[in-house]
Design a protein around this nucleic acid. Structure first.
Lengths: 244, 244
DNA sequence: CGTAAAATTGATCTGTCTCAACGTGGGTGG
DNA sequence: CCACCCACGTTGAGACAGATCAATTTTACG
């Protein structure tokens, strides 16, 4: 398999062979992690940057009353926190949702990457996009109905998975539970179930045993009020003046 | 007035005199902007980084149905997007809430700051904290009741305003409307009104004509489930190995 | 196969919204 | 300097999206 990460970053910059070689090297010897395992917990000092190569992971926080809220999904090609050099304690936890293939990049590895201007720019882009996704999620939960929320999430994941070659047309693997979607959307799992049924009844999607098919993407997007601008795709070759 | 920004950044790093001089210089000749004016709109190419010196501003998005969602408050010492060099189009808008004193920093100015390692580190810290706040807001809206949400927001603003010297004990100016709080919390303005009344009746706060007094901070924090770790204060002098 | 996790269904309850009206205070023009 | 006015805050009543509780069915997997 061609390097996922290369593919993702090339959506934004064009990488030299040396850059690509480094990325290949970085993704060597991944660790296999089972589903529902913590990679790092709130309060810990992040020593490494996690990079997901396969499977779905998430950021989450626990509330005092035992409820969990998921704040982000990490799909293949996504990084855990690049703030290793700045912040001393994690303010949230990172866990796998499905079984994952993961690499833990130690600080020197990150420095190596940041020393290459193009890669540094690309990594910065990644973290800005992650932040933009977070903003969109806030709007999603704050201002949309349950149906729209879920529809919006499914649209977003399609685009994100496409950029790493993991969505074939309008189909992708979604190896997560309805209860996990509930914890993500601030809904009860019962309601998520009914929402999914409605989306199926409307012939917008089909979802069975972890396989999602978007049956009518145009309608789903309209229904969700989905505007992909926040993913900042198609801003390739940002030919702004150099910043280095 | 001692430079706000200096005070804020010194919560994290210790600045040299030269750093401070640059910060003073950067904050020179602010522009006065009235309440409810856009600084930059979704879709535009950010040319400058806005820095708020006085007043409250916000990030927001408009939905197709005309609803607005506020995704962040910018208080004095906060920066608009530092991604000037990376992203081509704003995915959200920036506007004042109250009358503001603002500076628009052009790119060369930002570069000047980034060239100083300590300042660069401090700015990076700022943007990581902004992101952490965003995550906490997501949890806030996704998992807490209306009362807890508002209480949480008021706790957060107290700490943020303290770090720039704008909260005197447990009192601060909150120059925003109940309808704006509603757009922030994903609630109706009618409900925000009732929530505030309940917080007043419980003798947790007093809020009148833009002046907030937190009457019982300990109880308010407990009630809101407020854990300040995400603001990453008290991580001063992050003596991690150099990253430059 | 057997068993536990996940999905589904039904019934009821409640937090929050919507609509509609009314009160109020601070800014402004006469 | 007063009176008006408009944005903001407040109140009440009724509606509804989504929660909760409690089974029951289906699926995945050892």
């Amino acid at each position: 398999m061609a390097n996922l990460l290369t593919r993702k970053l090339e959506a934004f910059v064009s990488l030299s062979d040396a850059d690509k070689r480094l990325l290949d090297d970085v993704a060597r010897r991944p660790r296999l992690v089972g589903a529902r395992e913590d990679l790092i917990r709130e309060g810990e000092d992040p020593a490494d940057v996690y990079l997901i190569l396969e499977g779905f992971a998430c950021r989450y926080k626990m509330l005092a009353d035992g409820r969990r809220h998921i704040m982000a999904y990490l799909v293949p090609g996504d990084f855990g926190d690049l703030h290793v050099f700045i912040l001393k304690a994690m303010d949230h936890s990172l866990a796998t949702l499905s079984p994952c293939r993961v690499v833990a990049l130690p600080r020197p590895r990150i420095l190596e990457m940041f020393e290459r201007p193009v890669l540094a720019r690309a990594l910065w882009w990644c973290s800005l996009v992650d932040e933009a996704v977070l903003r969109e999620w806030l709007v999603n939960i704050g201002a949309r109905t349950a149906e729209e929320r879920v529809a919006h999430l499914l649209c977003e994941l399609l685009l994100r998975l496409r950029t790493v070659g993991l969505a074939d047309g309008t189909t992708y693997e979604l190896p997560i539970t309805q209860a996990e979607i509930a914890d993500t959307m601030g809904l009860s799992h019962v309601h998520v179930n009914r929402v999914l049924q409605r989306l199926r009844r409307e012939k917008l999607i089909s979802l069975k045993s972890g396989s999602l098919v978007i049956l009518d993407l145009a309608r789903l997007k309209t229904f969700a009020g989905f505007n992909p601008n926040y993913l900042h795709l198609g801003e390739r070759n940002g030919s702004h003046e150099a910043w280095h």
